[in-house]
């Protein structure tokens, strides 16, 4: 099932399918947020933003607006 990364629940994982290229900073891709890589939502911050993720082995936090631009296939 295809969903936006922003809608993942705590502990859920998925495979990144696509990334809306214009709005995503290159930096995020460079840190491993690429189609084909696995991502797991570890925790959300209070007020649910930012999101603490494990992307391809990298532990990162990104804001919700950015996560909304990333499409994920639930595992």
């Amino acid at each position: 099932m295809k969903v936006s990364l922003a809608s993942l629940k705590k502990g859920q994982s998925g495979i990144i399918i696509s990334v809306v290229t214009d709005n995503i900073p290159l930096k995020l891709l460079e840190m491993g947020c690429l189609p084909g890589n696995e991502v797991e939502l570890l925790q959300r911050a209070p007020f649910s933003c930012p999101m603490y993720l494990n992307i391809n082995g990298s532990h990162l936090a990104i804001r919700k607006e950015v996560a909304e631009q990333i499409e994920v296939e639930l595992m």
């Binding site: 995020l28 930012p50 603490y52 532990h59 936090a61 607006e65 950015v66």
Partner: peptide, 11 residues
Amino acid sequence: SKSFFVVEMPN
């Protein structure tokens, strides 16, 4: 200004 917030959470 654009917002590019990305923070690494190190061990």
